[in-house]
Design a protein around this nucleic acid. Structure first.
Length: 182
DNA sequence: CATGGGATTGACT
DNA sequence: GTCAATCCCATGC
């Protein structure tokens, strides 16, 4: 559905729980997301359009990938209509395909630790900055929407930020062993 | 052009 | 519990 990403960023973040992120041989089900919007200071789009943030204002359904702490790549799905800076951060996946390849990239570890964080899952799936600006429906990195609505989605505050910490814009599968910061 | 700060992770006390 | 790694880029001089 072409409207999937064009709606309110929190609605999109909730709707992406249960979707599958796929890159090459590796894939996982989304169990944790967070919403970011230009109207609040935790969002990169808060500063307006810069070379870094221009992707956030582009076509909904576009991948926004950036480097965090000089080390990790973060995967986001651009949301809301073109011209509005907003995106959904993919924070954790339940691995479903290519688990051996994920282990090669991440090192020997439990399945629960392969994708249980935004920096971990990009490493496990081989997602890098070159994927910034790609189309999540037809590009090398794809998101396949859930076939059926997920029964329960928990709402809580976002993790690891210093501004707008009170907004309940984090969404996750209750009781999942694959979410971050367990 | 120089500087400082992260939407984090993993190693270590 | 604390803390360093490491780089892109926004900001300010």
């Amino acid at each position: 559905m072409s409207d999937l990403y064009a709606g309110d960023v929190c609605t999109v973040a909730r709707a992406l729980i249960g979707a599958v992120v796929r890159h090459g041989e590796t894939a996982g089900v989304i169990v944790e997301t967070e919403a970011y919007h230009e109207s609040e200071p935790a969002c990169h789009a808060w500063v307006g359009r810069t070379p870094r943030t221009i992707t956030l204002f582009g076509t909904p359904g576009t991948a926004y990938v950036y480097r965090s702490y000089g080390i990790h790549a973060m995967l986001n799905a651009v949301a809301e209509p073109e011209g509005v800076g907003a995106a959904v951060l993919i924070r954790a996946l339940e691995p479903v395909e290519g688990i051996e390849l994920m282990r090669e990239r991440r090192g020997r570890t439990r399945v629960e630790d392969l994708c249980s964080g935004p920096g971990k899952l990009t490493q496990a799936l081989g997602i890098e900055l070159v994927h910034n600006g790609g189309d999540l429906r037809s590009g090398p990195v794809r998101i396949e929407p859930p076939s059926a609505a997920v029964v329960a989605v928990a709402t809580s505050v976002r993790i690891g930020i210093t501004r707008a910490v009170e907004l309940p814009w984090r969404f996750s599968v209750p009781g999942s062993r694959f979410t971050s910061r367990r």
